[in-house]
Design a protein around this nucleic acid. Structure first.
Length: 483
RNA sequence: GGAGAGAUGGCCGAGCGGCUGAAGGCGACGGUUUGCUAAACCGUUAUAGGGACCAAAAUCCCUAUCGAGGGUUCGAAUCCCUCUCUCUCCGCCA
C-alpha cells in the first residue's frame, strides 16, 4: 500500500508510476474521495467533541431526573417528564447528525480502500521504462569456466565451459535430449499418472527424480541457513485472505490463487493456498512493532507453492516448466527504512543465487525488469534466467535452440508491503518518536522442479545418463550419476 | 465433533453504565543520590487519523481505539447479538 498522505502531496508521482507500470488506476477519483472523507470526518469529529461536552453537562441531570420520575407522584410526573425530554433534545439532535455523517463516511470507504489497495508502488527512477518483458534489459551473463573449481566437478562432465552462443552439440559433442525425454527415459517423472490424479499441469516425481528434487531444495535451504545465516522457518501455505492482501498479492493476483471456500461449508472464513513462501514469511510480523536492533530480519523457508496459472492456457503445457504445484526455497529480508540498505540487500540476495547457480555450473543471466513487467508491489525487480537447452525455437534438425528461462525473481519493495501488513519498528534512540514502516525484499533461492530442467539438460551425458552435480551428491546418498 | 473458560496498554493484571486512554505492578527511559555498580526515591512511558503552527522538527487541539463488527443508551471496556481467536476437558486423528 502506498502512503495516502504522500499521494495527496505528490499525486503526479503516482500518476506517473501507474503510467510506467501500465496500470490504470483512477488517482483523481481517489483524491476526490479522500478529500470528501476528510471533510466529513472533520465535521463528525467536531460534533463528537460537542457531544462529549453536552454529555458531561446534562448527563448527570438526566440521570437525576430519571431517578426523580420513578419516585415522583403522578401529578408532578408529567412536568418532570417534559423537562427530561427537553434535556434529551440537544444530545439527540447531535447524535442524529453524527450518525448521518458516519453513514456517509462508511459509504465512501469501500471504494476508497479498493482504489488505495490497487495503487502501485511507483517504480524507481533507474528502472528502465517499458511495456512488457520484451523491454527487460540484460544486466550480465555468467558462463561456467572450462576448468571446474575444486570440488565442483571434472572436465568433460556437465556444463563446464559451456557457451550458450554455440549450439549444444558444439559445446558437448552430442545432441541433447530435452528434460521431458530425460525424465521419461530415466524414470524421473510420470506425467500421465499426475494428470490422472490431479488434472492438467500435474506430475509425479519418481525415484531419482524425487531424490534430485529434494537434493536441490535441501542444498539451497542449507546454503541460506548454514552459510548465509538466514533463520529457517516453516510457515502456513494455507492462509487467510488478510495475509494475501497484506503481502500485496491481492486484489491484483486473486485469480492466480486457489481459493478454499470454507465459509460456504460453515467454516467461518475462507482460506487461500499461497503461491510462494513469501506470504507466510512476511505475514509473520504483521501488526507488530519491531525493535530496530532486531533488524534486519532474514528468513528462509521451503514450502509448497500453488498457482492456478490462470491466463496461461496453452502456454508451456508440457513438462515441468509451468505447473500448478511446486516447491520453493524462498528468502526474505525485512530491514530498516533506508534506501541504501534496501538496495544493498537486494544485491546480496541476488548474489546468493548467483553463487548457487555457479556451484551448479548453470549458465544464467540477470535481467533488469522494465517498469511494465513489475508487479504492483515492487519498486524494482531483477529476474534471473537459467539456460535451458530444451527451450527456444526448434531448428530443421529437430533440435531446439535453447533459451533462458526464468528461475528466480528478486524484488525490492520499499515499505509498500510492510505498510499493508502494518509492520513497523521504532528507531533506536527515538523511543518517543513515531514508528516507521520497515522495508522488505524477497528472492527465490531455488524453485523445483523448474530448476531440475536446466540441471538435467545441462548435466546429461552422451549415453543418456545424467551426472549429479557434485554439490548435490551429499543429499543423494553420494550418488554421482542417474541412469 | 461435544462441554466449559476467556480476549484490557511492551508484559502481568484491576475495572463490570458517566469522574476510565484506562488503577496497581513489572519492564523501559530520564533524573536525584552515589567513588563505581546495586538499592532507594522522583518523573516519563500506547497507536492511528484529522487539524493548528510551520521550511522542518518540537509543541498544542480534536477524534478513534479495552479481540472484530453490529445493537441498546443522553452516555459502553462495562449490558445484548454475531464473528474471530486462545485455553482446559472429552472424543477422533497424521
Amino acid at each position: 500500500m502506498i502512503d495516502l498522505k504522500d499521494l495527496r502531496e505528490h499525486p503526479d508521482r503516482y500518476r506517473d508510476g501507474c503510467r510506467k507500470k501500465g496500470m490504470a488506476v483512477d488517482i483523481d477519483r481517489l483524491l476526490a474521495l479522500d478529500e470528501e472523507r476528510r471533510s466529513l470526518s472533520t465535521r463528525r469529529d467536531n460534533l463528537r467533541a460537542e457531544q462529549g461536552r453536552v454529555e458531561k453537562e446534562v448527563g448527570p441531570q438526566i440521570g437525576k431526573l430519571a431517578g426523580a420520575i420513578k419516585k415522583a407522584q403522578t401529578n408532578e410526573r408529567a412536568s418532570l417528564e417534559a423537562e427530561l425530554e427537553a434535556l434529551k433534545g440537544r444530545p439527540a439532535a447531535l447524535k442524529a447528525q453524527i450518525q448521518d455523517l458516519e453513514a456517509k463516511v462508511a459509504a465512501i470507504e469501500p471504494e476508497l480502500n479498493a482504489i488505495l489497495l490497487s495503487v502501485p508502488l511507483p517504480p524507481d527512477p533507474d528502472v528502465p521504462v517499458g511495456t512488457s518483458s520484451d523491454d527487460n534489459v540484460e544486466i550480465r551473463r555468467w558462463h561456467p569456466p572450462s576448468t571446474p573449481p575444486a570440488g565442483l566437478g571434472v572436465v568433460g562432465e556437465g556444463p563446464w565451459g559451456f557457451d550458450v552462443s554455440k549450439p549444444y552439440e558444439a559445446n558437448r559433442g552430442f545432441r541433447p535430449k530435452n528434460h521431458i525425454d530425460l525424465v521419461k527415459d530415466l524414470g524421473l517423472a510420470d506425467f500421465e499418472r499426475g494428470v490422472k490424479i490431479a488434472g492438467t499441469r500435474s506430475y509425479v516425481l519418481t525415484g531419482d527424480g524425487m531424490l534430485l528434487h529434494n537434493a536441490v531444495l535441501r542444498y539451497a535451504f542449507d546454503t541460506m541457513t548454514l552459510r548465509h545465516g538466514f533463520r529457517a522457518m516453516s510457515v502456513p501455505v494455507l492462509v487467510r485472505e488478510e495475509a494475501m492482501v497484506g503481502t500485496g498479492f491481492f486484489p491484483a493476483g486473486r485469480e492466480q490463487a486457489y481459493h478454499i471456500e470454507e465459509a460456504k461449508r460453515g467454516g467461518g472464513y475462507d482460506q487461500f493456498l499461497t503461491g510462494t513462501g513469501e506470504v507466510g514469511l512476511m505475514a509473520l510480523h504483521a501488526d507488530e512493532i519491531l525493535r530496530e536492533e532486531d533488524l534486519p530480519i532474514r528468513y528462509t523457508t521451503v514450502s509448497t507453492c500453488f498457482r492456478r496459472e490462470a491466463g496461461a492456457a496453452g502456454k508451456d503445457t508440457a513438462g515441468l516448466y509451468r505447473i500448478h504445484q511446486f516447491d520453493k526455497v524462498e528468502q526474505v529480508v525485512i530491514c530498516r527504512a533506508d534506501e541504501t540498505e534496501s538496495r544493498s540487500w537486494h544485491a546480496k540476495m541476488i548474489g546468493y543465487v548467483e553463487e548457487l547457480l555457479q556451484s551448479l555450473a548453470l549458465p544464467y543471466r540477470l535481467l533488469q525488469c522494465c517498469t511494465g513487467d513489475l508487479g504492483v508491489k515492487n519498486a524494482d525487480m531483477v529476474d534471473i534466467e537459467s539456460w535451458m537447452p530444451g527451450r527456444g525455437d526448434v531448428g530443421k534438425d529437430g533440435t531446439p535452440s535453447g533459451a533462458y528461462g526464468e528461475t528466480h525473481s528478486a524484488s525490492r519493495l520499499y515499505d509498500y508491503q510492510c505498510r499493508r501488513l502494518n509492520m513497523r519498528y521504532r528507531p533506536a534512540g527515538h523511543e518517543k518518536g513515531p514508528t516507521v514502516f520497515c522495508h522488505s525484499l524477497n528472492n527465490t533461492v531455488a524453485a523445483s522442479p523448474r530448476l531440475l530442467i536446466p540441471i538435467l539438460e545441462m548435466w546429461q551425458n552422451a549415453d543418456g545418463s545424467v551426472t549429479v552435480p557434485p554439490v548435490l551428491r551429499p543429499y543423494m546418498g553420494g550418488k554421482s550419476r542417474i541412469g
